[in-house]
Simulated scan of single mutants.
Amino acid sequence: MDAKAKKLLDDAGRQTYAEEAGIPVKDQPAALWKLLVLANLLSTRISAKIAVAAARELFAAGGGTPRGMAGLSWQQRVDALGRAHYRRYDEGTSTRLGRMAEIVLDVYGGDLRRLPDKAGRDRSRAAELLEHFPGIGPTGADIFCREAQAVWPWLRPYVDRLALRGADRVGLPGDPGKAGVPGKDVARFTAGLVRVARDKKLADAVARA
């Protein structure tokens, strides 16, 4: 593996954003639902740290499954977001999360493992389907796919624009394969690229490797 790629994984890619939020990296209904919630929360103009904290609060309140999220009242979701200081977007996000849960239940039978078949395991089609969820636009679809490639190998390598910006900042190729990164580490690698895209101090430390 490229020395700089190893430095990136060690300093910025020890965890994906899902793992940071306490979401198990598994191809299971609850884990994929939680990832979708996190992608929704990360899509707004708010810090990743606050979005991760908000996800944890929602899951602790009972929103860790589509049925559980749908069962929370609008105010309960707002309160959970507020405890994580997810402000300004809390009311609209509460509404979108409730609607998103209903769609997962109605269209996917509560199980997002059906999405790959619906998408024909085509990355562009998967992104289109994800954008049908309220609050998930191109950015949210990128976040979901970037993280889901840890358990859905057909997505690999998924390197979105923000990750490419990080690669350029630290002088790494945008293609993980060219940096010698094995498939099992690609999701962590791209998460690390996103972190250095957002953090100049961290990027400088990696770039010096």
Score class of each variant (00 low, 15 high):
M100C: 04
G98W: 02
P138F: 00
L38A: 01
R114E: 13
V107T: 14
A55H: 15
A70I: 13
R125A: 13
P134T: 07
L112Q: 02
V37R: 00
P116Q: 11
G98E: 00
H85D: 15
R56L: 00
L32A: 04
L38Y: 01
E57D: 02
P134F: 01
E102T: 10
L58C: 06
R77Q: 04
L129D: 14
A48D: 13
A80Q: 05
I46H: 06
L97V: 14
S94F: 04
T139M: 09
G98H: 03
A101V: 14
R99K: 12
G109M: 09
N40S: 14
I103R: 02
I103H: 01
G110M: 10
L32W: 07
L42S: 03
Y89G: 03
G64W: 07
R67Q: 06
L130T: 06
R88D: 09
L58Y: 08
G92S: 13
Y86W: 12
A127F: 08
A61K: 10
M69L: 15
G82N: 05
W74S: 06
A53V: 02
P138D: 03
L81S: 07
R77P: 01
V78L: 07
L38K: 02
G64F: 09
V78G: 01
R113A: 00
R125I: 09
A84V: 04
S124T: 08
G120L: 13
A80D: 02
L115W: 12
K49F: 10
G62Q: 06
R88E: 07
S124L: 12
R125H: 08
D106M: 03
G63A: 08
R121E: 15
T139A: 13
A48T: 13
G98S: 01
I136G: 02
A54R: 10
D106Y: 01
Y86G: 12
I103K: 00
S94P: 08
G110T: 07
L97Q: 04
R45H: 10
E131T: 15
R88F: 15
A55P: 02
H132F: 10
L32G: 11
G98K: 04
G135M: 08
L130G: 06
R45E: 07
T65Y: 02
W74A: 06
D111I: 05
F59N: 03
I103W: 03
T95A: 12
I103A: 00
A60V: 09
R123M: 06
E131V: 10
W74Y: 09
R121T: 11
G109D: 01
L35E: 13
R87I: 12
V107N: 12
P66G: 08
P134Y: 00
P138Y: 00
R87W: 05
D106W: 01
R125V: 12
L32D: 07
L32K: 04
L130D: 05
G68H: 09
L105F: 10
I46P: 07
T139F: 12
L36N: 04
H85T: 05
V104L: 09
A55L: 12
I136P: 10
L129R: 12
L97T: 14
S43M: 03
V104A: 11
P134R: 00
T139H: 08
